[in-house]
Computed example of a mutant assay.
Amino acid sequence: MAPLPTPPAQPEDTPDRYVGLAAAEATRSAEEHGWSTVRTLPPGTIITMEFLQGRLNFEVQDDTVTRCWVG
């Protein structure tokens, strides 16, 4: 039987620190801090509620991160 895949590491980072940053700056910083996936979404976007280890989500309005959450 094949071994179970190892999920990406969850960086020890504070998502709130990205709020208020420009989207490109926040994405670059998140990637440098070890997030394997960074997703940028406009306000009100309908998304699934699946949790993905190592993913950081940004809600961006007018090129500024207004909300940030893990998963």
Rank of each mutant, 00 (worst) to 15 (best):
T48M: 07
G44N: 09
E50T: 09
A26W: 01
A22W: 00
Y18T: 00
V65W: 00
R67C: 09
P11G: 07
Q10K: 10
I46S: 11
Y18C: 02
L56K: 02
P7G: 09
R28K: 12
Q10Y: 05
G34A: 02
I46R: 08
I47D: 09
E59N: 08
H33P: 03
F51M: 10
A9N: 13
P11C: 06
Q53L: 12
P5W: 11
R39C: 05
P42Y: 07
Y18S: 00
T64D: 00
E50Y: 10
D13C: 00
R67H: 15
Y18N: 01
W69L: 04
L56I: 01
T66M: 12
R28Y: 07
E25N: 03
Q10I: 14
D62S: 10
P3K: 09
H33D: 13
V65T: 04
A26H: 03
P15L: 00
L4Q: 14
T48Q: 08
R67S: 15
T45W: 04
Y18I: 01
T45I: 03
V70S: 12
E25L: 05
L56C: 07
R17C: 05
C68S: 06
R17G: 06
S36H: 08
I47H: 03
D63S: 10
P8R: 12
F58N: 02
R67W: 10
F51K: 08
L21D: 03
F58R: 02
T37S: 07
D16N: 00
V38E: 06
E50H: 05
P3G: 09
H33T: 11
P11V: 04
T27Q: 13
E50Q: 13
T6E: 15
T48H: 06
L41V: 07
F51Q: 09
T14A: 04
G71H: 11
S36R: 07
